[in-house]
Nucleic acid binder design. Structure first.
Lengths: 218, 218
DNA sequence: CTACATTTTTAGTTTAAACTAAAATTAATT
DNA sequence: AATTAATTTTAGTTTAAACTAAAAATGTAG
């Protein structure tokens, strides 16, 4: 059994590893968790003793296979609960994070098995993030142009093809940047235009826009 | 905001107060919570400072109006979650206590408002215990003979009319004692016999039995 | 009413997880 | 390469909530 604090550290390290694809620094963890670096050092040493991460002094931390599975499981629970809150209790998708942050720590294998089934074994949470499976595996992602997506598909912006300033300014105005999640709500086959959701906003984009944005899909 | 430990103490004191209708002793709390009396003393002093209970050294504790409301709210959450686990996730009613014990500490007013609505504003949990309302009020109970109940009603055994040893031995065999919860699953109007649920068991009882058992109802 | 038993409290430790301040290491700049 | 800056760790405190052992208060039996 792991403590709430330990689970939160593992989760944070998992997210930071995904973002940077490298070992994560003590300071990065401290900043993300709004705590002090010295506290982080204490905890990573403890997690290293428990073989959840591998850690070398001054060299940062990386999750072990075991730690990664553990972290993915907490994230799985978080995202399943978010689906519950939105689909069943009719919360808005931007109101559920705080509550899921608590629910993710409830300990019961059986509960999650049943919750998953009750929700129809969803693959994504209400923010479009993928839900890891029981073994902690997340469906691998693939790079595409936004224009290749169809209705109801989702992607995360990972780059642009066209780099002219008008285009970049357009993206800026629409709050689209690296890491932005995009849901395709509708697609017109006649001209390739789309209706997409970005954060709380929904708007129309032309084929030309969609052909110049790279997204990562699942 | 109150800590998990504080909420658990308040809940325990609430239950003990209900059972004995008097102030609760430090030892009683310690026993129920499987902790040491000295730990209880520490905590009741803290709760008294916070005006959640009134406490005089060596004289035991009683909840203040504020503390009682707080405790009832934790119990409300516990019981609503139990309904969720049984009605929606199809757990058996004797499997849900441990999980609800964790869920009852999730902090979100709105969550409980919505959960309550989603479950159809239930009045009882799957064990037949009443669910306090938002203001911590529990529907007042009334003393009746078991034979006065109808199908789907519930009662808690509070005494007997007939006191012969055959009758008491019968009750003993059926595991019915003071405090035992009884659900009436079916009633035959022709002869007044009933099918009742007691703990995990379901069985048939005659009108004569039902006319000699007092129960408290809601 | 005294003597013993039980209950309760106090005083002092322990543990997990945070903190501060200072020391050590690594990185960056001139 | 030497010095400064930034990062990270160590050492020592703090807090909440538990614990043990001993002291104090209360309850009970002769």
């Amino acid at each position: 059994m792991y403590s709430l604090a330990e689970e939160n550290y593992l989760k944070t390290i998992y997210h930071l590893e995904q973002e940077s694809k490298t070992g994560v620094s003590t300071n990065a963890i401290a900043e993300r968790m709004e705590t002090k670096p010295s506290s982080v050092t204490d905890m990573v040493q403890k997690l290293a003793d428990k073989k959840m991460i591998s850690y070398k002094k001054y060299k940062g931390s990386t999750l072990t296979v075991h730690g990664k599975k553990m972290a993915a499981n907490v994230i799985r629970k978080h995202r399943l609960w978010e689906v519950f809150l939105v689909d069943k209790l009719k919360f808005h998708w931007d109101e559920v994070h705080e509550i899921a942050e608590q629910l993710e720590h409830i300990q019961s294998e059986e509960l999650i098995v049943r919750l998953d089934k009750y929700l129809g074994n969803p693959d994504f949470d209400p923010h479009g993030d993928p839900i890891p499976d029981k073994d902690g595996k997340v469906k691998s992602t693939e790079k595409k142009l936004l224009s290749e997506l169809n209705k109801k598909q989702r992607g995360v912006c990972i780059g642009v093809k066209e780099t002219g300033s008008e285009f970049l300014q357009y993206l800026d105005k629409r709050n689209i940047t690296i890491g932005t999640k995009i849901n395709v709500l509708g697609k017109e086959f006649f001209d390739g235009s789309m209706i997409i959701q970005v954060g709380k906003d929904q708007f129309f984009i032309s084929k030309k826009i969609a052909e110049n944005l790279y997204v990562q899909t699942n």
